[in-house]
Simulated scan of single mutants.
Amino acid sequence: MKEEFICLLEKEAESMGVRLTEKQLEQFYQYYEILIETNKVMNLTAITEMGDVIVKHFADSFSLLRVVQDLNEKDYCMIDVGTGAGFPGIPLKIAFPQLKITLLDSLNKRIKFLNQVTELLNLDYIKTIHGRAEDFGNNKDYREAYDICVSRAVANLSTLSEYCLPFVKVGGLFVPYKSGKLEEELVNGKGAIKKLSAEIECIDSFQLTNCDERSLVKIRKTDHLNKRYPRKAGLPSKEPLK
């Protein structure tokens, strides 16, 4: 099974423009093993078939390279908001070791899992934080501290932007990973993004192997964020900006 895993991962990674070393391939296999084993006792992911994990979790994470072409050259400081089982943050860290990555999640049991993964894989310059995005977005140590914010969290574009843009430096990027059609989200999302001192630079839509359409929305932070954002915990999801 390991040989099959490595062969498929190499193929999918190369389709995204990512070349992995033997060490990196081994790290991905270890990550896959601990993900599947832990998922038996903790709900981390509904995607457990080997091929699906490789395509829908690992290759999908690599897709950031489509809109940040110098990802393998710069030591960007990046935060993954609502990281869950570590996607896209951990695959990006394995594939691009020079990145400095923070993983944020609101469930402490997930954070404990992520700490196990980072220790097992011996990953440097990666840290985990337990809490809500609205709270850390107002924390001076994290607010406007990152070159790039990524998120695959399941939330509409307006809500997700209020969670994530507070972390981004002026001139930096927020890139949400989205699935399906974006038209309706964009109608409401554009107004919210403008209020949050940012603008959509481009939308890159593509398809993974045997999957529905995926999109990356490349959003550029254009100015310092008004202090009223993010609003208190719960409001961004209950009353999304328009």
Rank of each mutant, 00 (worst) to 15 (best):
F28P: 06
K40P: 13
G234F: 10
A233E: 15
A155C: 06
L103A: 10
S197G: 00
G51N: 07
N156R: 05
L65Y: 10
V55R: 02
R231Y: 04
C211W: 07
E199R: 05
F174A: 04
D70N: 08
E33Q: 13
G180M: 12
T209G: 01
R220I: 02
V150I: 14
K221R: 10
N39G: 09
D105T: 08
G189R: 00
R228S: 07
L241M: 08
D141R: 07
N188R: 08
K23Y: 10
R66P: 01
Q116E: 12
I36V: 15
Q98H: 15
V187I: 08
N43F: 07
N122L: 12
N139K: 06
K109L: 13
E183K: 12
G51P: 02
A233S: 15
I54Y: 06
Y229D: 03
K140H: 04
G180W: 12
K181E: 12
M1N: 14
F58Y: 15
D204M: 10
T45C: 11
I129V: 15
T128E: 11
K232Q: 15
D105N: 08
D212E: 08
K181F: 12
V41L: 14
L92I: 11
D223F: 03
N156P: 05
A59L: 02
N122M: 13
R152D: 08
L114P: 11
D212I: 06
S15E: 02
R214N: 01
Q30F: 03
A59R: 03
F28V: 04
Q116T: 09
D212K: 10
N122F: 11
H130F: 14
L44A: 10
K227Y: 00
K56G: 00
G234I: 07
K242H: 14
A59Y: 01
D124I: 06
A145Y: 03
P88T: 00
C77G: 02
P91H: 08
N188Q: 10
V150E: 04
I219T: 02
L99N: 05
A133W: 13
D212Y: 06
R66A: 02
K169D: 03
A13F: 00
S237T: 01
G171L: 00
L20I: 06
C149E: 04
Q27P: 09
V18S: 13
I36M: 13
K56A: 01
N43W: 09
E33M: 10
F28H: 03
A155K: 01
C77Q: 05
G82C: 04
E26H: 12
T118Q: 12
T38P: 00
D212H: 10
Y76G: 09
L235C: 00
L107A: 15
K242G: 13
D70H: 07
K190G: 01
A85Q: 12
I34E: 00
T21S: 15
L35C: 05
S61N: 02
S237M: 05
F206C: 05
F87S: 05
S15K: 09
T83P: 11
L182E: 04
K218H: 09
R66N: 02
